[in-house]
Amino acid sequence: MYPLGNLKEVILTVDCEKYKRVFDENNGIIKLSDFTKAGYHNTVIDRLIREGKVIKIRPGFYEWQYEDVISEAIIINKLYPDAIICMDSALYLYDYTERTPRAWHLAVNKNSSKSRFKIDYPKLKIYYIVEKYFKIGISEIEFEGQMLRIYNREKTICDIIRYEKKMDKEVFNKAIRSYATDSDKNVARLVEYAKLMNVEKKTKMIIGMWM
């Protein structure tokens, strides 16, 4: 038989492993509802936080503390499934810039609650977009094993043209040159989006300089 102290330690270890499995099944990040649906009381989360096994990343969302750091892409997917990667982050994923963004640039519906995005990690830069522009050019891309929502190349180029004055000039010029030489570009689609976003004249002028 186990000594009483060792028995208690074994029970805690077994309990810990069954709780950890819930996180494992959700890429290391869960909503509180994921935990309670698995049959466990929400007060267990508080205990796991006190024990240093779990951290709270924002209200209602929790992350297991593995030895290896959880991919930021997993966090973005879990916390913000409605968000769309845009601007500098999209440029980076399309290899239109060599600069790694200091934050994840995410587009969300203009009516989204701002409190949702108050997290310490990863860093976020949020763009609140009106409905008529928000739904244009949504695509997907695989990054770090995750399928992420992202604006396609043409929507991304229209966005940076629209926000040119707020961008680093070198990053902007490199992105335009990269798009102009990209075999996957679709100029007809670019012009279509530019019309929808009221940047047609500027887009034709800028793109025309490189093509």
Rank of each mutant, 00 (worst) to 15 (best):
P3R: 06
G5R: 15
G5L: 15
N6H: 13
K8N: 11
E9S: 11
E9F: 12
V10Y: 06
V10F: 10
K18L: 13
K20D: 01
K20W: 04
R21N: 13
R21A: 13
F23T: 00
G28V: 06
G28A: 09
I30G: 08
K31D: 06
K31M: 08
S33R: 13
A38N: 00
N42R: 13
V44M: 06
R47K: 13
L48D: 01
I49N: 03
R50P: 00
E51K: 15
E51F: 08
K53L: 03
K53H: 11
P59M: 00
P59N: 11
E63S: 03
W64Q: 06
Q65K: 13
Q65N: 14
E67I: 07
D68F: 02
I70Q: 02
S71W: 03
S71A: 11
S71D: 12
I74C: 08
N77I: 01
N77D: 14
K78Q: 02
K78P: 02
L79H: 00
L79F: 05
A83S: 10
A83M: 05
I85S: 01
I85F: 02
C86F: 07
M87W: 05
S89H: 08
S89M: 06
A90I: 08
L91S: 06
L93S: 05
D95C: 10
E98D: 15
R99Q: 15
R99I: 15
A103V: 01
W104Q: 02
L106N: 02
V108N: 02
N109E: 15
N109Q: 12
S113E: 12
K114G: 04
K114I: 10
S115T: 15
K118S: 14
K118W: 05
I119G: 07
D120N: 15
Y121M: 10
P122W: 01
L124V: 09
Y127R: 02
Y127A: 06
I129D: 09
E131C: 09
K135W: 13
K135P: 04
K135A: 14
S139Q: 09
S139A: 15
I141N: 10
E142Q: 13
F143R: 10
E144L: 06
R149I: 03
Y151L: 03
Y151M: 02
Y151W: 04
N152Y: 05
N152I: 01
R153L: 10
K155P: 09
K155V: 06
T156W: 04
C158N: 07
D159M: 05
D159C: 09
I161L: 08
I161R: 03
R162V: 04
R162S: 11
R162H: 12
Y163A: 04
K165Y: 12
K166Y: 14
D168L: 10
D168P: 05
A175Y: 00
I176G: 09
A180Q: 03
T181N: 14
T181Y: 07
D182T: 03
S183C: 07
D184I: 06
D184S: 15
K185Q: 10
V187L: 01
V187A: 05
A188T: 13
L190E: 00
A194Y: 01
L196M: 11
N198E: 14
V199W: 05
K201N: 13
K204T: 02
K204V: 07
M205R: 15
I207D: 02
W210D: 09
M211Y: 11
M211P: 00
